Amino acid sequence: MEIRSALILLCVFVTSVWADTRPDFRAIKQFPLDDRTVYTILISRDEPTTIMFPSALTALEGAGITTDPEASAPVFLNYTKGRYYFSVRALQEAATGHLNVIWNKHTYVLTFQTDPHPFNAVTFYQLTDPRPELGQREGVGPTKLLGLLDRAKAYHLIQGQYPEALPQIDTAQPHRRMLYKDFEVEIAEVFRFDPEDTLIFKLLLYNTSDKEICYLPQTLAVRVGTNVYYTSLPDASGVLPPGRIDPKTQKIEPSVSLAYFAVTGSPDGGRNNLAVDNPFNVIVTRAPSPVTLDAATK
């Protein structure tokens, strides 16, 4: 009996330690350096956020930021000249601040804002390719994209059983719907794989008509503002089965189809650096008939 009790206590202890040492990907962030991007860093009053660059910084220029913790500015900055890192912390509940970091003859723009789930550590890394945007995209071929699709599909299974095996993946479940004639598109989930600059979209497509609808998977795209990002790899059937007519009410019960597609980089060949919580609008091109669909997919 004593041995059994000891084993139970040991299991509880190991489980507690395991739970405490799981990586928190919301708090630990890594971003590629891109002087055309504005980085939003989430901070809080209770915890410092440490930001690291590849080497010593040249200069810092800020607004709404102070190096005196007793001052009335929104954000406190702790930095020693010549170091490659600094820390920030909010001094007010709803604090915002702006900081330009001059490093390696480039200026990187950071904005700070308070959030219930702040970043604890942010590491900026430099892409080694002389033309990092092109080098990054050329390294993301069909085989790599298929692997990312598989990882997105298995994300929740792995998260529940082997969380330590997951790399840093940002996710969102916007459940945002777009209405088309006779069908609807819902963004069920978005996954971001930052090293590959790739987003995976999980879609639910609802056919609200009693007829089969065909669409072109290879033209799937998302719109963010005025920019359109076309798929780098679709995983979709291209066919929406007809909805079922209820014999009693004669109303159509929509059919539901699942589809995935990837978006990699930006239309100009650079990185997209798109966050998963953007207000995406999915673009679906309808095919006139199954014949056109077959011809387009050959």
Rank of each mutant, 00 (worst) to 15 (best):
Y180K: 10
I283M: 15
D182Q: 14
G225K: 10
Y229M: 10
G238H: 05
P288A: 14
L179C: 00
Y206A: 06
F261V: 01
K248A: 12
A262H: 03
P247Q: 01
S255F: 02
P247E: 04
S266V: 08
T231E: 08
L258C: 00
L199F: 01
V185G: 00
P241S: 13
P288Y: 07
R192N: 11
G243F: 05
S257Q: 07
R192K: 14
K202I: 00
N273L: 14
E184K: 09
D268T: 11
P195A: 05
F261Q: 05
T198N: 13
D210P: 00
N207P: 10
F280T: 09
L274Y: 08
L199Y: 04
V228T: 15
P241Q: 12
I283D: 12
R192H: 12
V190E: 03
I187N: 03
A221M: 05
D194F: 03
P241C: 00
G225E: 10
D246N: 15
K181P: 00
M178F: 10
V190Y: 03
P290E: 08
G225A: 08
Q173M: 14
T249F: 07
V284Y: 06
R271E: 01
N281E: 15
E189G: 02
N207L: 08
Y215F: 15
V190H: 04
L233C: 01
I252C: 07
R286Q: 15
I200M: 10
T292N: 12
T231W: 11
E186C: 01
L220M: 08
R244S: 11
G270H: 12
H175D: 09
V282D: 08
E253I: 10
T264A: 07
N273M: 12
E189C: 07
D268L: 12
